[in-house]
Nucleic acid binder design. Structure first.
Length: 163
DNA sequence: GCCAACGTTGGC
DNA sequence: GCCAACGTTGGC
């Protein structure tokens, strides 16, 4: 019997600035699980709300740093809930326009599974079969992007090789 | 630090 | 609904 498409495993790439939350930070957190706070983009929010399911595979990506690239494997560990930082005036993620009775911004928990070798942007670009990967597109700024299964599998294989 | 690309805001 | 101005992202 074929499972419904809603049960199909999905895969994602999630960007994190290592100065905010590195793969080491995530692995060191209780249960290696961190609330993915600070998403302030509607498309990324909608991926969390409408697309991501507990157990989905996540490529943990370091951005805005000396060596941007994939640095670990994680999984989606919860459904969405309101991101509390949107209501915190002291937070850089504060959003005074978000109605408390209808929170604009969501987060979900991400559980780090393991650190990998750095699979950096230049190396990713060397592989033509990965050319469609969203994070390789010019001007790609989305902090959460879906990853097609063939891309996921290719990246898993690359992570098992030397750079 | 630079700057291209992008998303959001707000005047009209 | 258009679009210019602005702020942010993120690689380099």
């Amino acid at each position: 019997m074929t499972p419904p498409s809603s049960a199909t495993p999905r895969h994602w790439l999630m960007k994190s600035e290592p100065e905010e939350c590195s793969i080491d930070d995530a692995l060191a957190a209780p249960g290696a699980t961190v609330p993915w706070t600070g998403v302030r983009n509607y498309q990324a929010r909608n991926f969390m709300r409408d697309g991501m399911q507990v157990g989905d595979g996540v490529l943990f990506y370091h951005s805005s740093c000396a060596e941007p690239g994939i640095v670990g494997i994680a999984r989606v560990a919860s459904g969405t809930r309101a991101d509390p930082t949107q209501f915190d005036p002291a937070s850089p993620y504060h959003d005074p326009k978000s109605p408390p009775d209808a929170p604009r911004w969501l987060l979900l928990d991400v559980q780090a599974l393991r650190k990998t070798r750095l699979l950096g942007l230049p190396e990713l670009r060397q592989h033509p079969e990965l050319a469609d990967l969203r994070v390789l597109q010019k001007g790609s700024r989305l902090s959460i992007t879906p990853v097609d299964l063939p891309h996921w599998e290719r990246i898993m294989a690359l992570l098992d090789t030397q750079a």
